[in-house]
Design a protein around this nucleic acid. Structure first.
Length: 481
RNA sequence: GGCGACGUGGCCAAGUGGUAAGGCAAAGCUCUGCAAAAGCUUCAUUCGCCGGUUCGAAUCCGGCCGUCGCCUCCA
């Protein structure tokens, strides 16, 4: 079974064949770091994280580039959003960028999102952007007016092919407003001359100014991945104009196809409306992390196919949490049983069940990264694992290890929802575990003596402290809530 | 208005021609001293509505209704 990807370019599911066998060059549009990351970012970057993890799990050598936008991303009012934030906070623009870039990585790290291999910043690639703009001017795809440079969308026959937009046949100026000095209303800025109060500014052949928003991705993708590369990811909300502009300017400048596969993630919504900063309906990623474990947020992000929207709600998060706890409960039970398991081949036939789960997992992930179905595969496996482990029949160490590694590989390495283990390392945790074990033994003695008021008191008091006891045929185990 | 996505049980959701995965919630049961955890059972003759194609459609085609996204602020 070969990997298939729904390619937004052409809007069909296609077999994935990398440009160079065994290697995947991938670019994903990153955030503009002038404010906190919210769950919308978390959803999208968790999805792409799983995509990258799965590609690597499948044996591909992935080069993953994700930019940090720190300049040129203007508001509708033509204000630079970074400068605006800096003015509000009374700090230098680059301080804003530094601070929120740091927070962004902190939040993504906490969510278990693997860092991109390269995180290039727009402001560090001004020369590359200027060079690309010069190429576009030389080829007649861009023009300079009053120190600013615009891309002429009528110069490219296939402009609009990604978002399926066609230029309206109309003459410039017939619209009510033709902004700036553009020849066509649809032309977009490659370089903008800076007004005196605009602090973020660089020298260029045309003026002291700053690059447009779209050119950074084209320039940095070219620099690190080449003219043509395999996968370009991002959020569906940036399909137009951002992604469309990237495609047209890159292909015009490079005379080569740009990204071969486009993968765009669905938006996170709240009550059916997109979570966004401007609507002020967002939940910061770090606030969500205070309330829910990172694995639960990842489960939630994977509750629908990556290209579909996901609606945020407490009920949705709680469903994700309940589902996760059942999965993780099976893993925890497996690990606790490993401690005293015999090195026998008891229950060895269960290996077939594990192999089937692996095969199913790969099959559904190969089908355009069907994460909800991949989770379902683990959930079905979990039912059988629980049945086996609670059956009372002997289970040998090799099988337990095979169960553990199945969860670790599929749920851990690929999906990032199964932690590697709760290693008790610090002195305090080891002491705590010892004390809990002592209380468990005291309770066991009380139960044997049928002193249930005493045994229930120990259980209830521990529960109040966040330690839940579970009585099993082979003894009592505990877990922290 | 243009472009695009979508509408599946109480909720979330998979499913692109062969007779409805999975999770959450709910109810009953088993296990337990009681719990917890786990397992079992029940829970859509039906996939927004109306037509059509077909031996057969949630899946294909047409129309209608509704929701959402983008159309130079947004991952």
């Amino acid at each position: 079974m070969a990997l298939k990807i729904f390619n937004v370019l052409g809007r069909e599911k296609q077999e994935f064949t990398p440009l160079n066998p065994g290697f995947v060059n991938m670019y994903v549009c990153g955030p503009t770091t002038y404010d906190w990351s919210h769950l919308g970012h978390a959803k999208n970057y968790v999805n792409f994280d799983v995509i990258v993890r799965y590609l690597r799990f499948s044996g591909y050598n992935v080069l993953y580039v994700q930019n940090i936008t720190d300049v040129g991303h203007l508001l509708e009012t033509d204000e630079d959003r970074v400068i605006k934030a800096a003015r509000k906070l009374q700090v230098k623009p680059m301080q804003v960028v530094e601070e929120y870039t740091r927070y962004y990585f902190e939040d993504m790290d906490a969510l278990g999102v693997t860092r991109p291999d390269i995180s290039p910043r727009a402001s560090a690639h001004i020369p590359e952007q200027i060079k690309m703009i010069q190429t576009l001017i030389a080829k007649g795809h861009a023009y300079e007016v009053n120190g600013s440079v615009y891309f002429d969308v009528t110069s490219a026959a296939d402009y609009g092919k990604l978002s399926n937009r066609k230029l309206e046949k109309q003459e410039a100026g017939t619209r009510e407003v033709v902004r700036d000095d553009k020849r066509n209303p649809e032309d977009f800025a490659l370089w903008k001359k800076a007004e005196p109060e605009h602090i973020l500014r660089w020298d260029s052949p045309w003026s002291e100014g700053f690059p447009g928003w779209h050119i950074e991705c084209s320039a940095m993708a070219k620099k690190y991945l080449g003219d043509t590369f395999d996968i370009h990811g991002g959020g569906i909300d940036n399909l137009f104009p951002h992604n469309e502009s990237e495609v047209v300017q890159s292909e015009c400048a490079n005379d080569a196809p740009f990204a071969r596969y486009w993968m765009l993630g669905g938006s996170l919504t709240v009550d059916g409306v997109k979570m966004s900063k401007s609507l002020r309906n967002f939940v910061r990623a770090r606030d969500a992390l205070e309330k829910y474990r990172p694995q639960v947020i990842r489960m939630f992000a994977m509750s629908a196919h990556y290209a579909s929207p996901v609606d945020y709600s407490d009920a949705g998060m709680q469903a994700a949490q309940a589902g996760w706890e059942r999965l993780y409960g099976a893993v925890r039970l497996t690990r606790s049983m490993l401690g005293a398991a015999p090195a026998s081949d008891d229950s060895n036939s269960f290996r077939d069940r594990l192999a089937a789960a692996r095969a199913q997992f790969i099959e559904v992930m190969d089908d355009d990264f069907n994460m909800p179905k991949a989770v379902a595969v683990l959930q079905e496996l979990t039912r059988d694992v629980n049945t086996l482990l609670n059956s009372g029949q002997a289970v040998g160490r090799p099988v337990l290890e095979a169960i553990e590694s199945t969860y670790t590989d599929l749920g851990g390495t690929v999906l990032g929802i199964i932690p590697a283990g709760e290693a008790v390392t610090s002195g305090d945790s080891a002491r705590e575990a010892g004390l809990i074990q002592l209380l468990i033994e005291m309770r066991t003695a009380a139960r044997k003596a049928k002193n249930f008021s005493e045994s229930d008191r120990i259980r209830d008091e521990l529960a109040k402290l966040g330690v839940v006891l579970e009585d099993r045929a082979d003894g009592t185990i505990w877990r922290a809530t």
